[in-house]
Amino acid sequence: MKNKRGWFAFPYVIWMALFVVIPIVIMAVYAFTAADPATGATQPTLGNFTGMGLYLSVFLRSFWLALLATLVCLLIGYPVSYWMAKEGPRFQRLAMALIMLPMWMNFLLRTYSWMSILENNGLLNQLFQNIGVIDLYNRIAPFFVDLHNVFARYFGGVETSFVPIYHFQMIGTPGAVVLGMVYNYLPFMILPIYSVIVKLDNSLIEAARDLGADGVRVFRRVIFPLSLPGILSGVTMVFVPSVSTFAISNLLGGGNQMMLGDLIELQFLGGAYNPHLGAAISMVMMVIVVVCMVVMNHFGEGEEQAVML
């Protein structure tokens, strides 16, 4: 028997058609066409894709930084989730509120705040200045430069001279971009892992201990394998927005760390105006992300079923 209330989904079907399917079709049309610079007429072409090799470095950087951000999120997020899940309900509510709180603030505002912290004369550098960390660096670093020069003299290499610094260069580095992404997307790692661990049947842990497993073994052989579905969905939820991020890399990368999102933005709103190329890049990125997700979900399928039990 068909679901009687199926027509309730009707508005959503229209929504999907209007705002998901049709846009993708439009995007595909754009991606496989190009405008003739002379006449402005559009013609079908594969040129948008064949010429994409130019942007290989942007692709590589995007995936590399997104991977780093995901890894850092996992390394921070898993212990936090585990710890939260093992504490009492009052602590859990408090921790949850603290994790959610930054998400209620505007995304740009959060990123601008990080800018003012990481800038060359930002909060962090001022702090380093005031507590003497920069002076300390200027005193210690010459020694290492000398050491380097000695090696260079005897084993061959380029001698350098020491230039005193007035601030640490943080903004504009890949590290700053990764930091921005971790800060913004960490909750998406914590929440799914936490919700899996908190639902873990305590009698499974007792059973493992009863069978002779000490704390480390209980974690390795029971808790971790059973929290894999949470890890998989956390990784997906951090990696996908990280790959396509644009404002973070623009603001914290200081223009040196262009990622795919920035490149696409440039094609639509920036000076490089070329929506056909922008659409093509978007499509390639989408395909890569979809492939990644399919592979990961396939990898985690067995575990998913296990948790249904």
Binding site: S203, A208, L211, G212, A213, A306, L309
Partner: peptide, 30 residues
Amino acid sequence: VPPHQRTVNTVFQRYALFPHLNVFENVAFG
């Protein structure tokens, strides 16, 4: 003495079998 150091084993009320392991691996766990 913690449970994993006792020569006592328990059959739990709702079995508490490890859902990520098959029958053989469940039995072989200890």
